[in-house]
């Protein structure tokens, strides 16, 4: 059955106020957009008869993105440009699709396949010194793992495998953090978690951070040899 389907990958953004949508809300909105676009999507055989669609890893609520992806399985192969046009006309502008192409239907599930992410974060505030924050982040990393609360649940993330690099530089609004992360089957690192851990370590030396603005700017697949493969 799956062999006869066509796996269309769509790249889209998450911008403006729609950055505040939760992952489930994004999923619901995209699925309705696909239906409105009239694409010949495939339906699963389960009890709930859901659309066959996969999404890239959840963004934190409030984070924007230039590079989100979904793979929708189509029963008929239609021109990707035409599909893109139909989707663009049926999607709220904050989640507008920007590129679409067919990919290998046998590739791993999208969420597992996209293993690398680049983040552009801005710590908005005063007295935020790049040197201090770089030192604190290195100290956090040196601990090997990081425990944090997500809601009521305690989580642990291994920094050795998930934190690739973190570079701080001054910005007009405070401090800019260019962050590279890796998703592993055991977990992934959210920018806010790392920043919070560094802030705690710094204490009064951290300065005053009013807001943390997070944007995912790039996602890719990392091969075993370390080379990076673009999603499209």
């Amino acid at each position: 059955m799956m062999d006869s389907l066509h796996r269309l990958r769509v790249e889209y953004g998450k911008d403006d106020r729609l950055a505040y949508l939760g992952h489930l809300e994004v999923i619901g909105t995209v699925q309705r957009s696909v239906r409105r676009a009239g694409l010949p999507f495939s339906i699963g055989n389960g009890f709930a008869r859901r659309m066959r669609i996969q999404f890239s890893q959840a963004l934190p609520v409030g984070a924007s993105s230039a590079c989100e992806y979904y793979d929708v399985y189509l029963e008929d192969r239609i021109d990707p440009d035409e599909a893109l046009e139909l989707l663009a006309a049926a999607t709220p502008p904050g989640l507008a699709p920007v590129r679409a192409a067919y990919v290998d239907p046998h590739q791993d599930a999208l969420e597992a396949w996209l293993t690398r992410a680049t983040w552009d974060c801005v710590l908005v505030g005063q007295g935020l010194a790049p040197v201090a924050w770089t030192r604190a982040t290195a100290a956090v990393r040196a601990k090997g793992s990081l425990r944090y609360l997500r809601g009521d649940k305690e989580k642990t993330v291994q920094l050795a495998s998930t934190l690739v690099s973190a570079d701080f530089s001054p910005s007009e609004e405070g401090l800019r953090l260019a962050l590279e992360t890796r998703n592993t089957p055991e977990g992934s690192l959210r920018p806010g978690v790392l920043v919070e851990a560094a802030r705690e370590l710094l204490g009064a030396e951290a300065g005053i951070m009013d807001t943390l603005r997070v944007r995912r700017v790039w996602q890719s697949h990392e091969e075993t040899d370390g080379s990076l493969v673009e999603p499209l």
Binding site: R17, T29, S33, V61, T211
Partner: peptide
Amino acid sequence: LFPLIEPLLSKVERPSRYLDHEW
């Protein structure tokens, strides 16, 4: 006056209640 609401969105449950711009 959305600029007055926006800074509050990250501090509340279910910020999508306050977004508008629905299809």
